[in-house]
């Protein structure tokens, strides 16, 4: 039995990409305003030592967001990436995402297709957001790409990621989009420099760097994720992106 219930999801392709995405059928949704949340989690071999902390971080963010006043206006998509990008579940209402299955959901091993994952995560919110808006719904989005290292396995370039970001921002489908690149366990200056450069080249709105990956640090990251998601959800209707929080 699959870990995540994907019964009501339909799959879609993304133009120019090997990877697609899935999302809940729009006529099954129970709210007219949606904040699309995409989390792309690095599962390359180097993440293995703190895999459980990453899972707990996602689980805790989901748990916190489910308690939020606007929980029914949140949809979550989760992908993991190593050699390839794998969707663990497509866009689902957060109220249909019980926290428990996120424990043990990641499988580590392999290289880091960081650009492919970022491109897919951003392209998917744009495409699904376009479908929502075409049916009269309102949507904005927030994308988190969590990694511990540089890309070494992607077909996509930072320039392609940048185009995806630009399309998300200028496409007039999503009311606003916030993109956050999170570097965890970044101990080497070389990796830090590379991720910061990627953030700039690809046009991420924010780069958050954590030099540790212990339980405490990732619990704070969970708090940051849930607060950022909720603030972006509150911004829906204001026409602009949310004010970014501090870690």
């Amino acid at each position: 039995m699959p870990r995540f219930d994907t019964t009501d999801l339909t799959t879609h392709t993304l133009v120019g990409s090997t990877y697609g995405y899935s999302g809940t059928r729009i006529d099954r949704l129970g709210a007219t305003e949606m904040t699309l949340v995409a989390i792309a989690a690095d599962t390359s071999g180097s993440v293995h030592p703190f895999k459980r902390e990453i899972e707990a971080c996602i689980q805790e963010a989901v748990r916190a967001c489910r308690q939020a006043p606007r929980a029914d206006n949140l949809m979550l998509r989760l992908v993991q990436f190593a050699d390839t990008v794998k969707e663990l579940h497509g866009f689902k209402p957060l109220v249909d995402c019980p926290p428990d299955p996120y424990a043990g959901c990641l499988r580590t091993g392999g290289c880091t297709a960081l650009h492919d994952a970022a491109h897919n995560a951003i392209g998917a919110v744009t495409a699904y957001g376009r479908d929502l808006v075409a049916r009269g719904l309102t949507a904005n989005a927030i994308v988190f790409v969590i990694t511990d290292g540089e890309d070494n396995a992607s077909r996509m370039t930072p320039g392609a990621v940048r185009l995806a970001v630009e399309e998300a921002v200028t496409g007039e489908h999503l009311e606003s989009v916030v993109t956050v690149l999170v570097g965890v366990n970044v101990k080497e200056a070389r990796v830090a420099t590379a991720l910061m450069a990627l953030s700039t080249q690809a046009g991420f709105d924010h780069y958050l760097e954590l030099d540790k990956a212990d339980a405490s640090t990732l619990a704070r990251l969970a708090d940051f994720l849930s607060r950022s998601i909720q603030v972006q959800s509150q911004a829906l209707g204001s026409g602009g992106p949310s004010r970014m929080l501090t870690f």
Binding site: G30, P69, R70, V95
Partner: peptide, 15 residues
């Protein structure tokens, strides 16, 4: 007590 916005989604009212 909850903010009124919580009650807006039809899914919430149904649940």
């Amino acid at each position: 007590w909850s903010p009124l916005v919580r009650l807006f989604p039809p899914a919430f009212q149904k649940r």
